[in-house]
Amino acid sequence: MARYFTTEHEWIDVDGDVATVGITDYAQEQLGDIVFVDLPEDGAEIAKGKDAAVVESVKAASDVYSPVSGTVVEANAALQDDPALVNSDPEGEGWFFKLAIADESELAGLMDEAAYREFVANL
């Protein structure tokens, strides 16, 4: 299983042709206490770089973009009851949605973990 990152602070785990997407620890720290996550519906088709979810803190709402194109196969229902999971475990239990990847070649432009850590260190 490979993990990639975007410059918009999303992470994406690829397992076969299914990808799991969430926001990074850096992103959740910047946002502060997460109070609500608006997730895509099952079956929604989302293009790479387009709005897929909205994550809200008390004073801000941020769009989450899909790192690759695909069809949503599952949204993380646990976030509806406990959006704080995004703060406590952003890169684990706080995942947002799973996608059936449409085009694996889109993964090519994404960063690996080391590249992302360096990207963040330079912000």
């Binding site: 609500f36 809200e56 803190s57 008390v58 004073k59 801000a60 709402a61």
Partner: peptide, 12 residues
Amino acid sequence: LSTREQHIRREK
């Protein structure tokens, strides 16, 4: 729930 409102969400 102010994130619905114009001063935060602006055009959305």
